[in-house]
């Protein structure tokens, strides 16, 4: 029961870690480049989720100045602010890697990493 309670209390951290691991698994196992990028995105989501959930205060309000009642328990706005930056970074990396994938597809005719490696092997042996 204790364990269950612990899990429920920390469900957001566990979820974040699960997302991170799922993303990592995708990156490791898939040879499709697009899927790898998706994996990176999932990893990123996991980290951001973790970061945002750090700032959570139980019973806290959104950090907007509320003029009417004097409830001053806000959740920590800083992680959210930081994660905004993180999201921008991951978006740009995703876009950049997608454009690279487009180029790779043009030059190699495939987006499968193993096949690309085979083509590169072939070329180095031909040298």
């Amino acid at each position: 029961m204790e364990v269950l309670k612990q899990i429920i209390e920390n469900i957001n951290y566990i979820g974040a870690l699960a997302l991170f691991v799922i993303g990592l698994y995708t990156v490791v196992t898939h040879s499709n480049l697009i899927k790898r990028i998706i994996g990176i995105n999932i990893m990123g989501t996991g980290v951001f989720y973790f970061f945002v959930s750090i700032g959570n205060v139980v019973g806290g309000n959104p950090p907007i100045v509320d003029l009417d009642n004097g409830n001053l328990i806000y959740i920590n706005p800083l992680p959210s602010g930081l994660i905004l930056t993180g999201i921008v970074v991951v978006v740009s990396i995703t876009v950049y890697s997608l454009s690279l994938v487009v180029r790779i597809y043009e030059t190699y005719g495939t987006i499968d990493q193993d096949e690309i490696a085979k083509i590169i092997d072939q070329e180095t042996f031909d040298d």
Binding site: L24, I40, M43, G44, I54, P79, L100, R103, T107
Partner: peptide
């Protein structure tokens, strides 16, 4: 260059996210 850059980007992104996780 494309494949090298892609590999660099993937691995570095994994590295950055690990770092960010540590920071968190």
């Amino acid at each position: 260059n494309y494949t090298a850059a892609f590999r660099y980007l993937m691995l570095n992104e994994v590295g950055s996210l690990s770092y960010l996780f540590g920071v968190a």
